[in-house]
Amino acid sequence: MRTVLIVLFDDVQSLDVTGPLEVFAGAEAWHGGSYRVLTASPDGVPVRTSSALTLVPDHALDDAPAPHTLLVPGGRGTRHPDRRLTDWLRGHGPRAERLVSVCTGAVLLAEAGLLDGHRATTHWAYCDKLARDHPAVEVDPDPIFVRDGRVSTSAGVTSGIDLALALVEEDLGRETALAIARHLVVFLRRPGNQAQFSAQLAAQTARREPLREVQQWITEHPDDDLSVESLAARARLSPRHFARAFRSETGTTPGRYVERVRLEQARRLLEDTGDGVEEISRACGYGTPEAMRRAFVKALGSAPAEYRRRFRPASTS
């Protein structure tokens, strides 16, 4: 049986705690004898979450049993961390077989020196600060979770559920993880490499309706003519005016936005369907497999076929 110890502190984000907790508790219910899930706070006294929910821990940190998996949630309480908590993590973190953080829990691990030399992520709003304050940590702002050896870190809030499901799948197999996901009514597989934002969320939504309509058109028709001239005509603007207005209102150029949408759609089709690379390249507007291959190598460092081998489950048909 693996002991999962979840650290609690005042102003913790409640979903950072309860999301992974429900996953591991569900695994224990489904596959008895697999996990013992415990919580602990510095003094063993109840803590008040950032949403005013009170959580009652099982133990004080100093009295908690040695964990197999030590999970550190995030929340407002990480902005000015309790020195007792970071000191405890510094002393006990190296003994855990698996270190896991959710959201800004990565900040606490970094403060304790446990992320030095590791690749890690956190909530998108705090990635720059984490990188600035802890230069020994290789911060990747894009994925929803990152696994680097015994250290696993996840982005904001619900991504902790995705990471917990990935850990359960590793420990107990895909069928158990799938059963838990079904029970929680969540997707089993949002792979860790998935971006924290979709292309539509990564860019700002344009203020003017014609530009918003163009953004939606691009998303729904990645295989269409998405040249600046064609998109400008759809927005009833000159190409020069359109390109300038689109960048001003969305924070990115039309071409870059189109690239993100096409790449995102191609990744989804590679992960979720058995369609061939040539068929996907046409459906996503690349035209040829070679054009799609160049886009994947440039953005992801791997060709489409290799990407599919890495991120598409063998059971997908």
Rank of each mutant, 00 (worst) to 15 (best):
Y257D: 02
H118E: 10
A64Y: 02
R182K: 10
N193I: 14
T158Y: 00
L85R: 11
H123A: 06
W88D: 14
R36P: 01
R234P: 12
V7T: 00
L163F: 08
I280K: 00
F246M: 11
G26D: 01
L263K: 15
R268A: 14
L85F: 08
H59N: 13
Y307R: 03
R182G: 08
A29F: 15
A112E: 08
R282K: 15
S34L: 09
R267G: 10
T86Q: 05
V146W: 02
A195P: 05
A233K: 13
V137R: 07
T288R: 09
H221N: 11
A291E: 05
R309D: 14
E28N: 08
L38A: 11
M292N: 03
S198F: 03
T78K: 04
D272H: 14
F296I: 08
F197P: 00
R174G: 03
T219S: 14
L300C: 07
R48L: 08
R76P: 09
E229C: 02
M1N: 12
D63L: 13
P304K: 00
R150W: 01
L85D: 05
I161Q: 09
G44I: 07
D275S: 07
P254Y: 00
D223Q: 12
R90F: 06
V23R: 05
R150A: 13
R236Q: 15
F311L: 08
F296D: 02
A283L: 01
I180E: 08
V23N: 00
D128P: 03
R234W: 03
P94H: 06
R48T: 13
V297A: 04
H118K: 07
P304D: 12
H68S: 11
G75C: 02
R244T: 08
S50W: 03
E271L: 06
S317D: 06
A164S: 10
L188T: 09
V214Y: 03
